[in-house]
């Protein structure tokens, strides 16, 4: 019966209600993984520039590992392989699709974010930390109050790029049957056999999220620009 509905009727009655559930899951995935990824990425970046060899090598290893292997593999590994490894150590862990997806996406995004943070921190002239240290500020105070705040404006554009990439990469989590936008799209398409309509709307859905993220970033950038132009 749905096969006879017009494009608009089918879209509004069938596709959009279903896909909007998928979009919500995609948004949740993006925001949760983005948030965790940012914090983790900052930590990894700080380890990398800590000047402590062991930590710096660990960080480099982490970044290389997560940027050097496919995200799809990382998702499958965490969802399927990790529980079997842990089982060998008598740890009984079943990871649901959503936490597994968040875990893979955050770990992966952190590696990319870390490089952005590191580049941002290294781009601040040395005179800034020297002036802060000369005033008696500790290393930590210098990093938190002088260096990092100056990186915000420079790192926002690459961070948004990365966040957009992350939005699109959440679609890979469909392989572990998590009902995000792409998975939902495939299901709806298969059920009603109206393929191009559903994929069109899915595309629009991703585009919307990315555009909204960019718009928010632009506003933040403008705000920062008014404050000293740094």
């Amino acid at each position: 019966m749905e096969a006879e509905l017009s494009f608009w009727a089918f879209s509004t009655n069938v596709i959009l209600p279903r896909l909007s559930e998928g979009i919500l899951v995609t948004l949740k995935l993006t925001l949760t993984s983005g948030f965790i990824g940012l914090i983790l990425g900052m930590l990894v970046a700080l380890l990398r520039i800590s000047g402590i060899k062991l930590l710096s090598y660990f960080s480099l290893f982490y970044i290389t590992l997560f940027r050097g292997t496919p995200l799809l593999l990382q998702i499958l590994f965490i969802y399927f392989a990790l529980p079997t490894i842990l089982a060998n150590y008598n740890i009984d862990l079943v990871i649901d699709a959503f936490p597994a997806g968040v875990m893979a996406l955050s770990l992966n995004a952190a590696a990319y974010f870390a490089e952005i943070f590191r580049a941002g921190i290294l781009s601040i002239p040395k005179g800034q930390s020297e002036a802060a240290r000369a005033l008696g500020l500790s290393k930590k105070q210098t990093m938190l109050l002088i260096i990092i705040p100056q990186t915000y404006r420079r790192i926002i554009p690459p961070l948004v790029n990365e966040l957009s990439a992350l939005t699109k990469e959440t679609s890979l989590v469909s392989v572990i049957s998590l009902g995000e936008l792409l998975y939902t799209t495939q299901r709806v398409g298969a059920k009603y056999l109206r393929i191009w309509e559903v994929y069109l709307w899915a595309g629009i859905g991703y585009l919307l999220i990315v555009l909204i993220l960019s718009a928010i970033a632009l506003r933040i950038e403008k705000k920062l620009e008014q404050k000293g132009g740094v």
Partner: peptide, 14 residues
Amino acid sequence: KMGMVFQSFNLFPH
């Protein structure tokens, strides 16, 4: 306790 003034000022721009 040692004030320092640099050639490039190094004020905190933010």
